[in-house]
């Protein structure tokens, strides 16, 4: 039997909204958080998870999520430093084992190599894709 997991998506960016929608449509328990009420319009119309209008910058809001170690947290606001802070708190203080974080500036990944944080560098992923496609032309 599949283990029951809760997913938390911090930041309803285009990326966050898509991940949350996909998780929700695949039948998972999802909570998405963003400071801006308007950003939730990006969610798929079939999204059936929770919506929290709260600012992740206020660390109390992160603590209030009452996360458990087995939860999965996906941190995808558009601010690298905020993503790092939230991931560090979630990983180190709250002991969450699965933390995924979007980051633009690769050089900051070094900072957290001791934590259980998996980085997803969207710009380097895009570069790889460009390389692959341009490879056909060059």
């Amino acid at each position: 039997m599949k283990k029951y997991k809760r997913f938390f998506v911090i930041g309803c960016s285009r990326l966050g909204a898509n991940i949350a929608s996909w998780l929700s449509l695949s039948g998972h328990d999802v909570t998405i958080m963003d400071k801006d009420d308007d950003s939730f319009r990006k969610l798929h119309e079939g999204y059936s998870g929770y919506i929290l209008v709260k600012d992740a910058e206020n660390t109390q809001n992160i603590l209030d999520l009452k996360l458990k170690p087995e939860d999965v947290v996906i941190v995808v606001t558009d601010n690298d430093n905020l993503n790092l802070m939230v991931s560090e708190i979630v990983s180190k203080l709250l002991g969450v084992l699965k933390v995924y974080t979007r980051i633009y500036d690769q050089s900051k990944e070094l900072l957290c190599h001791t934590y259980h944080i998996e980085f997803i560098n969207t710009s380097s992923l895009a570069v790889k894709e460009f390389e692959r496609r341009l490879g056909d032309i060059l």
């Binding site: 910058e57 660390t59 690298d80 430093n81 905020l82 790092l84 560090e88 900051k108 900072l111």
Partner: peptide, 16 residues
Amino acid sequence: PSDADNLISSQIAKYQ
């Protein structure tokens, strides 16, 4: 002004 910025700046300075 942002606490997150200060944390990251401090950590980079300290650890890197």
